[in-house]
Design a protein around this nucleic acid. Structure first.
Length: 663
RNA sequence: GCUGCUGUAGCUCAGUGGUAGAGCGCGUCAUUGGUAAUGACGAGGUCGGGAGUUCAAUUCUCCCUAGCAGCACCA
């Protein structure tokens, strides 16, 4: 007999060979029916898997939402694969995990058939529902590695065979049967039967290409994505959330609010409209103040440099395919012949600012007494990004960084990094992001520099974050092995937005490679030449992307200090136009970005239109207001209005329009 | 770059092998109204670009290009 301990502290003696399902049945038929899986000594397992000794058991039901969702999504993925193979025999299956909101399965369409498309999804969904409704038992079975490889090969499942062959030799592998006509290799655990899934709680969302094992050199499979939940209500709620996220899309809001546009002739580069550029200018002014206050000196460096400079820095060899290269010659102006001869020297648009900053540092002789030197630049960079990567403001080919490079001694690295941590935290808080995570990306496989330098650099970053008091769970502190840049480890700042999404923005990297390659030195206390350490750092990352993030975070309803138009004065009847202009004049004199809407439209119309444009304050004026020298302020997102004197209104708007660091 | 999908008026989108439609927006006129759409009339499109099939292509086929979703990439 085994002793099974339950969460309520009770114990049951169960015969050898019994299973969690038996315990559930022994407790009561209701629980037996509701049980989905079991947590045995902390590990989630199948209900039907026998105990292997005394155990602590907790039965999992749909009330244990996290576990139940994980199980359901994993099972949806298997049902998806089974359905695809049932409809199109000869389809190869590969891999299908659960995701944050559902599941996917990577499949390879049978030879001679095009990859699956959106049109195929309804048919697959229907088959999936059939499988679920058939309530097929899911049964775990152990196989030897070799038997399984042979089975996959016999079935023509080359991907599965390849995968099984790479698992450790002699290891016992498990498969799961769905009924007795379909199986997949899987560690499990699974629900007891497909009928435990709710056929109305999933939806196939899209298809996409995905490389076998995530490697571009491998075959491209079709990845079928679905979202899966415990019940219909949860699915509906999720679809609603997606819809809400769609409403925040910065591309949509950018058009509606007339902030910027993109067009074919300059794809990946942004046309900023007057309203959008007002946000930019406000942010830039804010960042200038922040960097001035942090001891940075702003510079401006060339947009185009000789390719030899990029060879020295190492970028030419590693990133040339993503650089815009320009021939250093006069183009052929004749009608005939190629525009460029082909034997010209090459120049390149800068993809980053750091090599130029080293050139500034290198002018003259720097003493250790001058360090640290902090150079800042609103640096406009170009990167020839792969076409498929471009995405609104989030991934562009021309962008401006709030870039900075700190040249310092070995002894100053930790302190400078600590200061940066604090500066970044201040900036994010000022911009309304209450939550962020700091992560350390450590050495990648391909890298420059010695292991000793990497050891040191990584430890310095750890120490600096600890010194700043931010190496804690509260700050989401964690390490990302292998994610660093080729020349340096980096700290990354990940913001959490209003609907829980995260965005990587700021970074600091401690670099000993570039000063070496570009021969930057300073004179030390001993009179000898020494290498400075170079800290690459940015807080916004790129203005384009950061503005995109702000738009999505605020769903377009930017705080007043950032809003392109901070107030609109709207007279109710045209007799009041004169007073409206007077109000406008007062606001303008106070430096408020404002407009008067004197159009021949009803007040309802004006309220609606400016609300849709996310103008924070609408100052409505009618006969009453004119007589009393007041305005009726309607604030975005509020239904009621506040009537106040013009002086009070100016004071209120001025206060709200003041940047947080100037309050 | 890879896979799938899409490209029709300023915007959102219908539609068709016989050279196009709606709503909003825009213009004109009327209306002077109290907090999310006043009404009427009007202008506006080489149906992303190129080639092919056809008597005829916005529609069918191919190529290119851009966008969307994902993958890969992201110094």
């Amino acid at each position: 007999m085994y002793t099974i301990s339950l969460p309520d502290g009770s114990q049951r003696e169960m015969p050898v060979g019994s299973t969690p399902a038996d315990v559930a049945a022994a407790i009561g038929p209701g629980l037996a029916k509701a049980a989905l899986a079991a947590r045995v000594d902390g590990e989630v397992r199948d209900l039907g898997r026998p105990f292997e000794g005394d155990a602590e058991l907790a039965l999992i039901t749909s009330r244990d939402e996290e576990d139940a969702l994980e199980l359901a999504r994993h099972d949806f993925a298997h049902v998806l694969a089974e359905a695809v193979q049932a409809i199109w025999p000869g389809t190869q299956i590969t891999f299908g995990p659960s995701t944050d909101d559902g599941f996917y399965y990577d499949v390879m369409a049978p030879e001679g058939r095009d990859p699956f498309g959106m049109d195929d999804l309804p048919k697959i969904e229907e088959k999936m529902r059939e499988i679920i409704k058939a309530d097929k038992p899911l049964r775990r079975e152990a196989w030897s590695r070799q038997a399984l490889i042979d089975k996959w090969k016999a079935d023509g499942e080359t991907f599965k065979a390849e995968w099984a062959a790479e698992l450790p030799e002699g290891e016992e592998l498990t498969v799961y049967w769905s009924g007795d006509d379909w199986m997949d290799m899987c560690r499990g655990p699974h629900l007891p039967s497909t009928g435990k899934l709710d056929p109305a709680a999933f939806k196939l969302m899209r298809v996409a290409g995905a490389y076998w094992r995530g490697d571009q050199a491998n075959a491209q499979l079709t990845r079928i994505y679905g979202t899966g939940w415990l019940n219909k209500k949860q699915l509906a709620a999720h679809l609603h959330r997606l819809e809400e996220a769609g409403k925040r899309d910065h591309r949509k809001l950018g058009r509606e609010m007339d902030l910027f546009h993109l067009q074919e002739e300059a794809h990946g580069s942004v046309f900023w409209h007057p309203k959008g550029y007002k946000i930019w200018r406000e942010l830039e002014a804010y960042m200038r103040r922040a960097m001035d206050g942090g001891g940075y000196e702003e510079i401006k460096t060339p947009q185009v440099m000789d390719a030899r400079q990029w060879e020295k820095s190492g970028h030419w060899g590693k990133y040339r395919e993503n650089m815009f290269v320009i021939p250093d010659e006069v183009p052929n102006v004749e009608d005939e012949g190629p525009v460029i001869s082909g034997d010209a020297d090459w120049m390149a648009l800068k993809p980053m600012n750091c090599p130029a900053h080293v050139q500034v540092f290198k002018q003259g002789i720097t003493s250790y007494r001058d360090l640290p030197i902090r150079l800042g630049e609103m640096g406009c960079c170009h990167r020839n990004e792969p076409h498929g990567a471009l995405h609104g403001l989030m991934r562009v080919r021309q962008f401006t960084q709030d870039d900075g490079h700190i040249f310092c001694t070995e002894d100053q690295v930790v302190e400078e990094t600590r200061k940066f941590c604090q500066l970044a935290a201040r900036v994010y808080a000022d911009l309304g992001f209450e939550k962020f995570a700091i992560k350390l990306a450590t050495r990648p496989e391909q890298r420059f520099g010695s292991d000793a330098d990497w050891d040191k650099a990584e430890q310095e970053l750890r120490d600096a974050v600890a010194d700043a008091g931010m190496a804690t769970e509260e700050f989401g502190w964690e390490e990302l092995p292998g994610e660093g840049a080729f020349y340096a480890p980096k700290l990354e700042w990940h913001l959490t937005d209003a609907i829980g999404r995260t965005w990587q923005v700021g970074t600091i990297q401690s670099d000993r490679v570039l000063p070496e390659r570009l021969d930057a030195t300073y004179v030390g206390e001993d009179g000898g030449r020494h290498r400075p350490v170079m800290l690459h750092r940015a807080i916004f990352g790129s203005y384009e992307r950061f503005i995109g993030i702000l738009i999505e975070n605020y769903a377009g309803k930017l705080p007043v200090w950032l809003a392109p138009t901070q107030a609109v004065v709207a007279p109710i009847v045209s007799d009041i136009d004169g007073y409206a202009s007077e109000v406008l004049g007062r606001l303008e004199a106070a430096g408020i970005r404002c407009e008067a809407d004197l159009r021949n439209e009803k007040i309802n119309y004006k309220v609606r239109e400016h609300s849709l444009k996310k103008v924070p304050h609408l100052l409505v004026v009618g006969k009453r207001e004119q007589e009393e020298g007041t305005v009726a302020i309607r604030t975005l997102g509020q239904k009621d209005q506040r009537v106040m004197s013009l002086d009070e209104a100016v004071a209120l708007l001025t206060a709200e329009a003041t940047a947080p660091d100037l309050r």
